[in-house]
Design a binder for these strands. Structure first.
Lengths: 159, 159
DNA sequence: CTTGAACCTCTAGTCGCTACAGGTATTACG
DNA sequence: CGTAATACCTGTAGCGACTAGAGGTTCAAG
C-alpha cells in the first residue's frame, strides 16, 4: 500500500514534503519547523512514517510564506491564520494587524533612510587619504559629526 | 587600596562598567559580551575583580556602538576597529567596507519600500467587510494579487 | 556596621530558521 | 529481484547579537 487512503480524487492527491516545499517556496526543514511550532497542523503520515500533504497544505504554507515575505512575525502570521480560518468574522482585526505592521515598516524605513543618507555623506566626504584623516572613521568615532538629531536607534532596530 | 594604579592623571581616571555603559549608550551586559567576543580588550580589574575602564575604552565602545547603529555587523566593526588602530594606512579599505554596507542598506531599503507600498495597497483596498471578502487576506493567500514582479525576497532579507 | 546598589560568572533564552548526524523509506534502473 | 540514489525521518546544535536571570561578591553611603 503506497498511500494511506484509497480512491482519492485528483484534488486530494497526496504529495511529499519535498514537493510541498518546492510548490510553496521553502525548504523541507522549514516545513517541519512550522509544524513543530504549530503554524502547520501535524501532517498525516503514510505507512513509512512520511508526511503526506494535500492542496490545502500548499495553500496554507503559501499564505505563511507570503505573510513572512511581507515581514510579518511568526506570531502575527499565527494570528492571521486564525483569522483566515473564520471568513465570516469582521476583518477589523486583520486590518489592525496590517496597519500596525505598516507602521513598523515605515519606522524602519525612516531609520534606514537616515542611515543611508549618513553613510552617503560619510563616503562622499572621504578624500581618499589615510585612515588618520578618514571622514568615515571620524564620523564613527564621534557622533557629533553626524547630521542626525539623536541616536540612530540601535542596530537591531535598523534592519 | 581602591584602585589598581596609584597617582593617576585626571585623564586616566578609572570608571566602572556601569558608567562606561552609560557614557557609551549600552548596557553592562553588552560591554561584557563585547569583551567576551574580543571587540573590547580584556579590561584590567581592581582588587575586588571588577573591571576598570579609562577614557580610551569609552572612545572605543562609542565607536563600536556608533558603527553598530549604522548597521555594520560585528565582524565589520571588528575590521573597522583594526583599521582605526592604524591611522597611517590608506583608507581605501574603510571606504570599500562603507560602500559595500551602503549597497546592502540600499538593497534593504528597496525591498522594504516595496513591502510598504504593497501593505498600503492591501490596507487601502480593504472595504471593511468580513474576512471572507478581505483584500488583505486575499493578497496574502495569492501572490498573483500582489503588484510585485517577483517574490519579495524572504523574511530575513526584508528588515 | 549595615544596607543596597553595583558588580561578578555562568547559563539559557530570544527569533526564525538552517545544518548537520545517523538512521529509514521510497523509487528508478538493470 | 537487488542495489544504489534519492527523499525522508528524528533530534540536536548553530547562527547573530545580544538579553535575562540565578546566585554570589564587592563597593559606597549613611
Amino acid at each position: 500500500m503506497k498511500e494511506h487512503s484509497p480512491a482519492l480524487s485528483p484534488a486530494e492527491r497526496y504529495i511529499g514534503i519535498g514537493e510541498l516545499a518546492r510548490e510553496s517556496g521553502c525548504k523541507p526543514e522549514t516545513v517541519r519547523y512550522y509544524e513543530r511550532i504549530g503554524l502547520l497542523p501535524s501532517a498525516p503520515r503514510n505507512e513509512g512514517n512520511q508526511r503526506r500533504y494535500t492542496a490545502s497544505a500548499v495553500r496554507r504554507l503559501t499564505f505563511i510564506r507570503h505573510a513572512r515575505d511581507f515581514g510579518f512575525s511568526v506570531e502575527a502570521v499565527r494570528e492571521l491564520l486564525q483569522m483566515a480560518d473564520y471568513p465570516a468574522m469582521p476583518c477589523e482585526e486583520v486590518d489592525t494587524l496590517a496597519k500596525h505592521h505598516l507602521a513598523e515598516v515605515e519606522a524602519r524605513l525612516a531609520r534606514l533612510t537616515a542611515v543611508r543618507d549618513e553613510l552617503q555623506r560619510m563616503i562622499n566626504q572621504c578624500a581618499g587619504g589615510n585612515i588618520g584623516q578618514c571622514h568615515i572613521i571620524d564620523v564613527l568615532s564621534d557622533h557629533r559629526l553626524c547630521h542626525q538629531a539623536g541616536p540612530h536607534g540601535g542596530a537591531d532596530v535598523i534592519g
